[in-house]
Amino acid sequence: MLEIHAQEQARRERARAEMAFKIQPQRSSSTALLHRGGCSMVALAEPGIEPCEVCRPQTGLLG
């Protein structure tokens, strides 16, 4: 029973993380970075925003 509860808790945390967006503001000569959220297509289409190379929010959007 505890395992089912832990799995449900992990699923909820993943769902919450996917609904969140974080944009790292532009700094000096670098561009702003978009970090993983549920759907990042809109923000990725904005000028001056690139996907974060660590969390790669564009993954899964190209298929």
Rank of each mutant, 00 (worst) to 15 (best):
I49D: 03
M41S: 11
F21Y: 10
C52F: 03
R11G: 03
S28F: 04
S40K: 04
Q7A: 08
G37S: 10
P25Y: 06
S40L: 02
P57K: 01
A20R: 04
P47K: 14
K22Q: 10
E18G: 03
A10L: 14
T31G: 01
F21R: 02
V42P: 04
S29P: 12
H35K: 05
A17Q: 07
T59D: 13
K22F: 09
F21G: 06
A45W: 10
T59F: 10
G48V: 01
S28N: 12
G38D: 02
E8S: 15
I49P: 01
M1L: 14
F21W: 11
G37P: 00
P57T: 13
L33F: 01
C39E: 11
A32T: 07
G60Q: 14
P47D: 02
E46P: 13
L44F: 09
A15I: 11
A15E: 13
C52W: 06
E50Y: 12
P51I: 05
Q7F: 02
Q58Y: 11
E13R: 00
G48F: 06
P51G: 03
L61M: 08
L61V: 06
A6K: 12
R56V: 11
R56K: 14
V54H: 12
R27N: 07
C55A: 11
K22R: 07
M19W: 07
R16Y: 11
R11L: 08
K22H: 03
Q9I: 09
A20V: 03
S28C: 03
A6E: 12
C55N: 00
E13C: 07
R36S: 07
E3G: 10
A15V: 10
K22Y: 05
A15N: 03
L44C: 04
Q24L: 13
C52N: 04
V42Q: 15
E18M: 04
T59Q: 13
R12P: 00
R16W: 06
C55L: 07
V54I: 13
T31E: 15
A32P: 01
E46L: 09
S29F: 10
E8P: 03
C52T: 01
S30T: 13
V42K: 14
M19E: 07
G48W: 05
E13G: 08
F21P: 01
A45Q: 12
P51V: 00
E8T: 12
V54T: 13
I23P: 01
R16K: 12
Q9M: 00
L33E: 09
S30D: 14
P47T: 11
A45C: 15
C55H: 00
Q7W: 05
R12Y: 14
T31C: 01
Q58I: 11
G38Q: 04
